[in-house]
Write a protein that binds this DNA or RNA. Structure first.
Lengths: 241, 241
DNA sequence: AAAAAAAGAACGAACGTTCGCTATATTTTT
DNA sequence: AAAAATATAGCGAACGTTCGTTCTTTTTTT
């Protein structure tokens, strides 16, 4: 069916379109961060707070991804942000809490974006493709943050440590629900839905966990997305006999 | 072809058989460790050294997987092993070097086992299945060490940091070479060999990176191996028309 | 008795955090 | 409108703690 394939290709959400539509700006996220934690942030001026929070969060993620959150000292953060030790502690209650707060922000953002895009689609096949693309594109835009999330989970305090575990399962659940719906409607044929959901998640994570590898091989996110979707579809789409 | 499938199933390497055959004992690995680094180890009695090295390495991996290698202090290690601070420093030159030494040991072991098992097989299809199973079974036996490798890579010193990156690519190459051979012999039909190798690696890694998830769902390593192999095969085995 | 191994007190460096201070912006009073 | 008072942001030295490591002493083995 070359015509149908062609139509599909035209309808594919491109990375650039997603980037424009989603328009997840650093500033907007930091404003949300500020409003949510203003009780813990000593700086009251929103304009100043948002500016410096953006600087602090960006620098924390960068340094953590280079040497690990635990290895990054507050003096490192002070030097790299240009803010003094005292000033830093006006923006968060302590090093550990800073980590928790960034995690909280990221988790919420991912789920919000994912849900928004899935709701737009009708059929399970379209939902699945959209979910895969939205997840990959979002992780491409926020690649440092995604890597940071994955690698620094164990450094969270016990209360918040459950969140990313739950978040891992939550993202996976989105895919499992789509798969279930597809099976129910007779569109998908899947042996093991749970395991299928797991390996989909694994393939999505590989994109941001092995960035250096894919960059080196000049594989862009759209190519990867297309490959993953075809790879999945071969295993779940009912064959027409 | 129910008969062929049945034959295949009988020939599948089981986890228990692998465990017996490979017989990777903690003690044997530590003896290798001792002989390789005896220049840096002050304790000369092999029996004592191997016993305590096993204790030190096991405890280091356990504590690192719980709280991270950097968060684990030498006092933690002293308390948990029951060895004094002074005694610890008779077994390795320093905390950083201990990490390097464990990584070195693990990397060598993985490649050795993988190569041994692949050499036994003839056809690419069998090689692929064996490689997948050997990798998964090995990571099941040494699950803590595999998790440790992945999570503590960035804490290695710069000289040794290249090793795990190279090791990631090295393991992947094993699979890519099998895929290439299969295509050449006309057994496999693959669009993108490099990307196929990548997602195979991603699925294998998921097994030891998300141990808690699979344990909770009561999915054992053999079931996972079977699923992964079928998932891959649907994408690479030439269809008979 | 000599050698090897283990012990644990001690050391300086570096850690996260605090706190008194200065500088600047905003509000209130005159 | 000018002056005084207050509030806020930023600073960096200093604190107590904990870190990796060393070194002398004690115990165990040969």
């Amino acid at each position: 069916m070359p015509r149908a394939v062609e139509a599909d290709r035209l309808m594919n959400m491109t990375f650039n379109r997603f980037k424009k539509e989603a328009s997840i700006t650093e500033e907007e996220l930091c404003r949300e961060f500020f409003n949510e934690h203003c009780r813990l942030i000593k700086v009251k001026n929103e304009k100043i707070a948002v500016k410096n929070l953006a600087l602090i969060i960006k620098t924390t993620i960068r340094l953590s991804n280079e040497i690990g959150f635990y290895s990054m000292s507050m003096r490192d953060l002070s030097r790299e942000t240009g803010l003094s030790m005292g000033a830093l502690y006006s923006y968060f209650p302590g090093k550990g809490r800073l980590l928790d707060m960034i995690h909280h922000l990221g988790g919420k953002t991912v789920m919000r974006v994912l849900q928004t895009y899935i709701e737009k689609e009708e059929s399970p096949a379209e939902k699945l493709e959209t979910a895969v693309r939205a997840h990959l594109y979002l992780s491409e835009i926020m690649k440092d943050m995604f890597y940071f999330f994955y690698m620094e989970t164990k450094n969270l305090n016990k209360k918040n440590r459950k969140t990313p575990v739950a978040s891992e399962l939550l993202t996976e659940r989105v895919f499992i629900d789509i798969l279930k719906e597809g099976v129910k409607k007779g569109i998908f044929k899947i042996d093991d839905i749970l395991l299928t959901g797991s390996v989909i998640k694994a393939m999505l994570q590989d994109w941001y966990l092995k960035r250096w590898k894919y960059r080196k091989r000049r594989i862009n996110v759209e190519k990867y997305a297309g490959f993953v979707i075809r790879f999945i579809n071969k295993n779940i789409i009912k064959e027409l006999k």
